[in-house]
Amino acid sequence: MTTGYNFAYLNEQTKRMIRRALLKAVAIPGYQVPFASREMPMPYGWGTGGVQVTASILTPEDTLKVIDQGADDTTNAVSIRKFFKRTAEVATTEETAKASIIQTRHRIPEAPLREDQILVFQVPIPEPLRFLEPRETETRKMHALEEYGIMHVKLYEDIARHGHIATSYAYPAKVNGRYVFDPSPIPKFDNPKLDSCAALQLFGAGREKRIYAVPPYTQVKSLDFEDHPFTIQKWDEPCALCGARGTYLDEIILDDRGKRMFVCSDTDHCRKARSGEEAA
């Protein structure tokens, strides 16, 4: 190897430590397992947690896809992909279906995932109770005793202020009927995809030193009120590029006179839809 680094940058001891944390996380769905997060050659907030998880589960045969806000070509995605290309020399792809490991920030791909795929999330703040309860000792106790009423206080505040549940990303959900977790800042549009997903979903928070997981086919239920049920975002128009409906759309400002368009945030899905149309 030309880089002089161990395979996938991290040394084997560190990977073993992280794998142990991962096993525990899979065994207790939604529970935040502390781990000894390492300094990575990128700043916190750039996905150091996700990168460490990916590095620990990566094998030379894997095909890696990295997305940031659904796109394969944004700075964060490009730099992490390049990082693993150099340090692990693994194959990379932009196609969801061809990837065996997908590291993601802020989105879940639109295409359904399979059992032989692993989704790795980058998590900034793993503790869903943090904004209401700043003490870590207290939030741990609340998780242990299943005291989650406070989570609804936040949703109550949303409705009282905005008339509806205005939380639109990092929407809290309950895993396997037990732990309430923060599904990282994905839009709540993606929350239903977490539920009974065929792929293993791993979450890594580098700065906060926590790992958690949603095993395949595990129930994930978004919190809500009986009279204000959980809903996902909807758009009036289809994607301006591929014409798809029912995908998560990004608003793109075209000029300073208010012209704008809505396009799929999942670039691979959008590209597939367009080429499929042309072929047909």
Binding site: L132, I150, V153, Y156, E157, R161, D224, F225
Partner: peptide, 23 residues
């Protein structure tokens, strides 16, 4: 809880014992 509204302050205990109906 100084960060949330008066209504949420009163409602917190209800939600803590399992009330899930906003109205």
């Amino acid at each position: 809880r100084m960060g949330v509204s008066a209504g949420a302050n009163v409602g917190e205990r209800l939600m803590a014992v399992g009330e899930r109906h906003y109205g």
